[in-house]
Amino acid sequence: MLRIRRIEEAVAQRYHEQEMRCPVHLSIGQEAVAVGVCAALSDDDIVYSGHRSHAHYLAKGGDLTALIAELYGKASGCSGGRGGSMHIVDHKIGFWGATPIVAGTVPIAVGAAWAAKLQNSSRIVTIFFGDGCFEEGVMHESLNFAALHQLPVLFVCENNGYSVYTNLQSRQPHRSISALASAHGVNSISGDGNDVMFVNQQSSDAIKRIHNGEGPQFLEFSTFRWLEHCGPNNDDDLGYRDEGELASWQERCPIELALGQLNASSVALDQEDVEKDINAEIISAFNTAQCADPPVVGDYCEYA
């Protein structure tokens, strides 16, 4: 979590240099969902995500240097410079793709889970998405199909209460997202998305249920985005969120909470050492990315 936080902070900090020439949706404040869920997955399991996907990619074990190179539009980027921050992939570790059309990857994940079932594979497929997805028809069509065919898919909703500048109350009626998922016949749980231990426990339990043949599972985690929807800045001054809302969530920083839990369980952690390693890794990834070659124009026809 700390590693993801520092990576996202580095992206934010260096974005102003105008060398990462693509829109970025950062996950600062929401790291616990990515980490708690992915820590419960096996290497063979598959993950898909949407526009805000750096944390999911990293938590699944995605290559950091390839991610940063992708942000810099380099040939060595995880998508060969074709995607930028909004379209990332790392097939080696089962991160099968993240793209930014809201809910676009949800049915694709369900399809991969369908294949797993038809091929008698033990892998499960996890799809991360935001609260906004619940407004798209394809989300409901996907839940219906997954429930109908009892597919090995874990739906993970990161409910941060907003879609861009619009709060959830202005977009959806007063009823819970997880209850709606239940109504589709998908077993659903909701809870604190800033508590990584809770997220991890719920994820492990849900994955066990999938392996027990109980069909698709749905987890809704509440959390909060600290920075602007898209870009490196804090935009709280725009006044679209209630005063004090950000501060109250920052008081419940997922990383601070986890550090507290570690202390309480007397796990020894030398944070300074960890920070040093992370920092070195980040510096090296940025240096490599900046020095890397841009994509070759002639190669751009490949796969087209």
Binding site: R21, C22, G73, K74, G77, S79, G81, R82, G83, G84, M86, H87, P294, P295, V297, Y300, C301, A304
Partner: peptide
């Protein structure tokens, strides 16, 4: 050209 829009700024040149 009959290709999806590139992301890398270098590719926008052509």
């Amino acid at each position: 050209p009959d290709l999806p829009a590139p992301t890398a700024s270098s590719l926008t040149e052509t």
